[in-house]
Amino acid sequence: MFTPARRRGSEILDDPNADPALSLRSLRDIALANRFFGGRNAVVRTLRAVLDTRPAGGASLTLLDIGTGLGDIPAAAERVARARGVVLHTIGLERAPLLAGAAAARCTHGLAADAMQLPFATGSIDIVTLSQVLHHFDG
């Protein structure tokens, strides 16, 4: 099997001048793909394993989801944590303020920031997730 060469370019969601309605529609499509093709389940399954190593109930944790889209993954993580008696504060991070605002509807907080310059003190976040966004990083 042959793997095609990697193509570089920009996505609609990377363009600060993109039509907001188109950006939000694209994020809804990504949330559906996360649901149907396992992106969300992969994160939730790993979170369950992490929570199973902690004492039951009473805990409070913070989860940062980098490139959160509409916050569908942190919202699912919060439901899983709640079912185990854990309060999970979620931060959905997106580069564009419009997208961070959309994520805030499902996350405890939506934050517009650069993933390469996170505005958090060392040790202030318990769990960091980054799903479906590695193609944005050069390396």
Rank of each mutant, 00 (worst) to 15 (best):
R54V: 09
P55S: 13
P55K: 13
A56V: 14
A56N: 10
A56I: 10
G57K: 11
G58N: 12
T62M: 10
L63C: 00
D65Y: 00
I66Y: 03
G67V: 03
L70M: 09
L70Y: 01
D72V: 03
D72C: 03
P74Q: 11
A75W: 00
A75T: 05
A76R: 10
A77C: 15
E78R: 14
E78P: 00
E78K: 15
V80T: 14
V80G: 04
R82C: 11
R82M: 14
A83G: 08
A83L: 11
V87L: 15
V87M: 14
V87I: 15
V87H: 15
L88D: 04
T90E: 02
I91A: 04
G92T: 07
G92E: 06
G92R: 05
L98V: 05
L98D: 03
A100Y: 00
A100G: 02
G101D: 07
A102V: 07
A105G: 04
R106Q: 11
R106S: 01
C107M: 07
T108A: 09
G110I: 02
L111N: 00
A112T: 01
M116N: 11
Q117F: 09
Q117V: 12
A121K: 13
G123H: 14
S124K: 14
D126C: 10
D126M: 09
D126G: 04
L130D: 00
L130C: 15
S131E: 13
L134T: 13
L134N: 08
H136L: 13
F137E: 07
G139D: 14
G139A: 13
